[in-house]
């Protein structure tokens, strides 16, 4: 039998879940996470290279998933396999291509200003972890490339002591690193990077912050926004 108490509910006790939820919603309210506006200064082609890198990463993961589903030897023997291997190779080339241009752009904008150091650091780490991710892919190809690269690069790994637990000539180990461990690290770093971009927004131009804070816009042709959203920086 259900007893309905007329008494008001007791005050909610602080819980870990509640604390995490409040922090997450505070940092990423929906209008910030999926913003439909961006600052007026975001007006250059250089801004598209972040999202292009992200898109290349997705093509890379997609083509890699197909190669993974069919196993490491498939692409040597079939035309469709070679096709997906080619997609994988060119998406990697494009990923680094766009990523490096994105990096140059962000450097020249000094995009770490205004509390955005962590955004730079996660982006830089994602770039650096992508390098061994690619390397383990090259040595997992099971062709002459893999033979040569693994026997050459082993000396650098061994000299730094890394070779003791990371053996480039052990196909099984390299394949695991390539299809699981390192992509997982890259994906986590990229998600963290994108969340930080959503949270802090795109860095404002040099010396523009103070001036623009003095001058509030007289009239806006963009649609009015709630005050809570107005304070949020946009990307």
């Amino acid at each position: 039998m259900t007893i309905i108490s007329p008494k008001p509910a007791p005050p909610r006790r602080r819980s870990w879940t509640l604390a995490v939820r409040e922090r997450a919603v505070g940092a990423w309210p929906p209008e910030k996470l999926l913003a439909d506006e961006q600052p007026s200064y975001v007006s250059s082609w250089i801004y598209v290279f972040g999202v292009l890198s992200l898109a290349a990463l997705l093509v890379c993961i997609g083509s890699g998933l197909v190669l993974t589903l069919k196993g490491p030897a498939w692409w040597h023997d079939t035309g469709v396999g070679l096709f997906f291997n080619s997609l994988h190779l060119w998406s990697v080339e494009l990923f680094f291509f766009f990523l490096v241009i994105h990096l140059w752009g962000k450097f020249w904008m000094a995009a770490w200003r205004g509390g955005r150091v962590r955004t730079w650091v996660t982006g830089a780490l994602a770039f650096l972890v992508s390098i061994p991710t690619a390397l383990t892919g090259y040595v997992s190809q099971q062709n002459f490339d893999s033979q040569w690269i693994s026997t050459q690069a082993k000396d650098a790994m061994n000299s730094a002591g890394i070779g003791a637990f990371f053996n480039l000539m052990n196909f099984g180990q390299m394949y695991s690193y390539h299809i699981l461990v390192l992509p997982a690290v890259v994906i986590v770093l990229v998600i963290g990077h994108v969340l930080l971009v959503r949270k802090h927004g795109v860095v404002p131009p040099f010396e523009a912050g103070k001036k623009s804070q003095r001058r509030r816009p007289r009239q806006s042709r963009s649609k009015p926004r709630p005050e809570s959203a107005r304070d949020a920086p946009r990307a």
Binding site: E37, Q38, L94
Partner: peptide
């Protein structure tokens, strides 16, 4: 002064931009 932007904003479609970028990159690949 660089922490928060208090100037003007322009409307923007995040999902559309990403979709176009994905389509373009897939086509180049």
């Amino acid at each position: 002064p660089y922490r928060e932007w208090k100037g003007g904003y322009r409307s923007y479609d995040l999902i559309k931009e990403f979709s176009i970028a994905f389509g373009v990159v897939l086509a180049i690949t």
